[in-house]
């Protein structure tokens, strides 16, 4: 069961992919289309596991991740 989830503002994401490297559950992956700025943003896998640990938000340089937890 999912304990949490994250919301990523893909229009502001610059695709540095640091959140992907640090997500302990591997639930973030590159999106499949570019955003308006020409960057490849990341997306949260809807079926992925998330504990709401907020590590992704902590390392996000663009402050585009919001974390929700039970």
């Amino acid at each position: 069961m999912k304990k949490g989830y994250i919301e990523i503002d893909q229009e502001l994401c610059k695709g540095c992919q640091i959140c992907i490297a640090f997500c302990p559950k591997g639930s973030i992956s590159p999106a499949d289309k570019l955003n308006a700025a020409g960057y490849m943003p990341v997306k949260f896998d809807d079926n992925g596991e998330c504990t709401g640990c907020a590590t992704c938000a902590l390392v996000c340089a663009e402050v585009v991740i919001e974390v929700y937890r039970d």
């Binding site: 989830y5 502001l12 709401g52 938000a57 919001e66 039970d70």
Partner: peptide, 15 residues
Amino acid sequence: MKKVYSRPKSLKKAT
């Protein structure tokens, strides 16, 4: 679910 992390208040909403 409760929001546990979001943008700090004193950081402007700008890219």
